[in-house]
Design a protein around this nucleic acid. Sequence first.
RNA 1: GGCCCCUUCGUCUAGUCUGGUCUAGGACACUAGGUUUUCAUCCUAGUAACACGGGUUCAAAUCCCGUAGGGGUCACCA
Length: 568
Amino acid sequence: MNAQPDTPPVPPTRPIVTRFAPSPTGNLHIGGARTALFAWAFARKHGGQLILRIEDTDLARSTPESTRGIIRDLQWLGLDWDQGPNAAPGIDPYDLASQKGDHGPYFQSQRHDAGIYDKLIQKLLDSGQAYEDDGAVRFRMDKDIAFDDVVFGHIEIKADDLEDFVIRKGDKGGRLPTFHFAVTVDDALMEVTHVIRGQEHLAHTPKHAALCDALGFARPKWVHLPSIMNADGSKMSKRDKAKAARKAAHTIAADHNEPIQSVIGRLWSAWCSATKKYKDQFGKDNPIQYTEKEFRSAYTAFVIDKEDSAISLEELDTIATTLTIIKPPEIQVSDFWKYGYLPSVLLNYIALLGWNPGDDTERFDMDFLVEHFDLSRIGKKNSQFDRVKLAKFNGEALADLPDNEFHCLLHDHFANNHPEYIHMLGDEGFKIFAAAYQARSQTLDSPTELGRFFVDGDFDYTPKAVKKNLTKNDGEGLNVLRQFRIELEACGDDDWTGDTLHKLIESFVEKHQLKNMGSVAQPLRVALTGSAVSPEIGPTLELLGKETVLNRIDRCVEAVDRQVQGPG
RNA sequence: GGCCCCUUCGUCUAGUCUGGUCUAGGACACUAGGUUUUCAUCCUAGUAACACGGGUUCAAAUCCCGUAGGGGUCACCA
C-alpha cells in the first residue's frame, strides 16, 4: 500500500475523444459517412471514445425521422459510438435515461432545455463580450485570431475580415443557441480532444476559436477534411438526384420532340400501369398513391427545380426509379444500401478518399484501418467520387463471398427490393439464380439488369445477335436451334437439370460434328434472352424450365422466319 | 466580390516537410493480346500526369514568388 514507484507517475494524458455531430435534417450522406468513419477510426486506434451528438438547434428543419435514419445508417455501416443516443432496437433515441455516457444529454435541443447554453451566454453578456441585438445575442469578434488545423496548418485571420455573429437566436428561432455556440460549448464540455469535420467548417473555425478563448475553454485540435465531389467537380448533394431526374425528363422530351408536359403525361400513364402491375403481382395496392393532378403538379415542380412540391423529393425519386427513367446517382448512405453495396466495401472505398496507408494497399478491412489510421496521412485536396471504382471493389468482394453467404445477401436484397424474382423462381430456383450471378454482379442489384429475362419473356431480339448466331451462313444457327429443340422436348422432367442439359449439348455437338458448345449455346441464348449473353447455358435452361424454354424457342424461330421472309 | 484553402496519369493517389535513388510507383478506367460455350472473371502487355511562368540551386514534382484554374465561406442553417 505504501510502496511508491521508483519513478514519478506518468502524468495522466487525456484520452482521445472524437465526435460525430450531424444535424438531423436529412439522410446521412456520403461525406458525413466518411467524417464519421475517420472520427471512429481515430478514436478506436487510440483506445479513445467516439461521441454521437445530434445538433438539432434548428427547430424548423430537424426531424426525429432524420435522427433515426442517421442512426440506422451508422449501424448499417457498423460504426459504433461510446456516448450518445441509445441505438438498441425498441428504444427511443430521444429518451434521456437511455442515453449512453456521462456528458449528456446528447441532443442539443435537450441541452438547451437543461439551460447549459443560456448560463454561458449570460456570462458573455455580463462581461461585455456579447450583446443583445434585436432579440438575438451577438458575440464580438474584434481581435485578430489564429489557429492551427491538423490538416491545413496554421491559419490567421485579421479582425477586419471578421464580423460579430449571432450566438443565440431570437424568438423566431426559439432562443436556441446557434450552431457556432452550441458546437463550441459541447465540444468543450464533452471533453472532445479532436474535432474531425468537413472542410466547409474551416472558415467558421475562427469563430469557434474565439469563443473557446472567451469562455476559458481549452481549444480542441481541429481536423478539417477535404470535400467529396461529383465526377464533374461539383459538390455531391442530394439535389443531384432531382437533377438526374430532370435531365432524364428533358432528354425524353428532346428524343421524342415533344413538350415537357406531354412527357409528364406519359410518365403518369407509365405510373398508372406500374401501379396496376404492382397490384396484379402482389394482390394489394401500391402503398404510394397519387391523383393525376398531384402527380402532374409535383412532377412539374420537380422537373423545373422547385423544392416545394406536394410530393417529397424521395418519393419522386422512387417514382422516377420505378419508371426506370433514371437510375439516380447514389448520394446518401441509404442509396448505396438500396443499390446493393456492401457496407465494408463502401467504408473501404471512402476511407481512400483523402486518406491512404502510405503504401500501395487499397483493399483493407476496418481492423487494418484502425491499426494504420493516422491524421498526418489525410490529404488537403478535394476528391471526386468514382462510382466505377467503388463498383469494381464491390464486385470483387461479392465474388469472394462464400456461396451461401452471397445467396443469403442476395435473397434479403431481393426480398426487400424485387420480391417478384423470388416469387417466380421459387426458393430452389433463386439459389441457382444466385449462383449464376455471383461472379457477374457488381452490386446485389446487378442481377436485375443482367437477368431480367428470367422473369420477363417480353423482350426484343438484338439484331446483331440474331444475325451472328441464327441467320448467318444460311440460317445455320436457326437449324441447330430447331434440331436441338427436338432433343430438349424429349428430355424428361427428371433430367431437366443444369448438368444433364450441359451434357446433352455436349453430345449433340459431338453427334453433329459442330465446332464447339457455342454453336448450340449461342443460338439458344438468343432465343431465351434476346441477346447473346447469359450465365452458363446449363443453369440458364434449368432455371427457365422446359415449358418456357420450348415456348421461347418457338417464338424466336417464328420471329426470325418472319423477318427472313421479309415484311408483307 | 472580400477572406481562407487547394492544384502529380481521365479518376483516387504514392512521392513534397527531410531537393539528387522519379527516364514519377500503385489502383480504377481505357486499349491490345491470351484463357473461356456468350458475358463476367482471370492472365499478360500498353497508352497516360508533376497546371503555367519566373526564380534559388551543381541539381526541383519536391524550396520561394507570381499567374491561371478549382473549392469553401461570408444566415437568428448546420
